[in-house]
């Protein structure tokens, strides 16, 4: 007689005791293999952008988040990060900041809320479209990290408005009209409508995020530090931890997909060829905002 299985049916072949990540994230989606049992407007959408995407993978659950993030571990991790950031921001004495720095930062930080909100939307989109539960989960946490980034930018913006009431009040106008922002706005708007699953994934993780985060997290933090704005530098350092994980899970996913089929690698290269120049141009234009900084 076979010994009684000690785990759920789909984990019996794992060959080791499943951990909470295995148990809580494996084979959670039942519709990709069965199809939806009722028709709705979204059916042709899924066919076009998911089922018939040039990027194909038979087993999306072969993806494994390198951090093995579960809901419980995510809440705990980010609670600690947010407590750290609260401490940093609430202790800041912003009255001693250089007005020239505030003037420069006012044309950057408040505007960033808009593209970061769009990144939140794109990560959410990948989550809803991914044919594997594990990918969807990573995307959901990623989207939540972008929500975190938006809120922390807003919080800092308001803090600085208490020093200079005009700080960032024209942010939306800047975003929509300032020449240095327009290539980035065009990139972001086109990214929002890049609906193919593979294209959205490659455009976001390979073309946009590495460049965007390098400028607006790493370089902005260095600039803040040089200008005595340690609160912002430390905030960005904490947000940078999130970005590092986005690079890690995105990299693991792209690598998995590229190795699955030669056609995938070709499709990925084609999207890279299309999106990387756009992203490079957009980020270079935005970098001009930094150059005039003290």
């Amino acid at each position: 007689m076979k010994p009684a299985p000690r785990t759920y049916w789909h984990l019996a072949q794992l060959g080791r005791r499943p951990n909470d990540y295995d148990v809580g994230s494996s084979r959670l989606l039942f519709y990709p293999e069965r199809g939806l049992s009722t028709g709705a407007a979204i059916r042709p959408w899924l066919r076009r952008y998911q089922i018939e995407s040039p990027l194909q993978c038979r087993d999306w659950d072969a993806f494994r988040d390198p951090r093995e993030t579960t809901y419980a571990s995510y809440a705990q991790l980010q609670r600690t990060q947010e407590a750290f950031v609260d401490g940093v921001l609430d202790a800041a004495d912003d009255r001693r900041l250089d007005p020239a720095w505030l003037a420069r930062l006012g044309s950057i930080l408040p505007v960033l809320r808009f593209p970061c909100h769009a990144l939140q939307m794109v990560a959410s989109y990948l989550g809803t479209l991914a044919p594997g539960g594990r990918v969807a989960i990573a995307c959901a946490f990623h989207a939540a990290d972008e929500l975190r980034r938006v809120q922390r930018l807003a919080y800092r913006m308001r803090q600085l408005q208490h020093v200079d009431a005009s700080f960032g009040v024209a942010a939306r106008d800047h975003w929509e009209t300032a020449p240095a922002w327009q290539p980035l706005r065009e990139l972001i708007e086109r990214l929002l409508v890049a609906y193919d699953l593979g294209e959205a994934l490659i455009a976001l993780h390979v073309a946009v995020l590495p460049r965007f985060d390098e400028l607006f997290v790493v370089e902005l933090a260095a600039l803040a530090r040089r200008n005595g704005d340690d609160a912002l530098a430390n905030l960005l350092h904490s947000l940078g931890e999130d970005c590092r994980w986005h690079r890690a899970y995105g990299g693991a996913l792209v690598e998995l997909l590229a190795n699955k089929r030669p056609e995938n690698a070709a499709a990925i290269a084609a999207w890279q060829g299309r999106w990387e120049p756009l992203a490079a141009r957009a980020v270079a234009a935005a970098a001009a905002l930094f150059e005039a900084a003290p």
Binding site: D90, Q151, A154, Y155, R158, Q159, Q182, R185, E186, R190
Partner: peptide, 23 residues
Amino acid sequence: MKLARDDWFDLARKLDWTYGYVG
């Protein structure tokens, strides 16, 4: 300086803009 939620939260909540390159 610590901010109350109601002081700053709207700056993070309302972020739609008028699209220029797509509809």
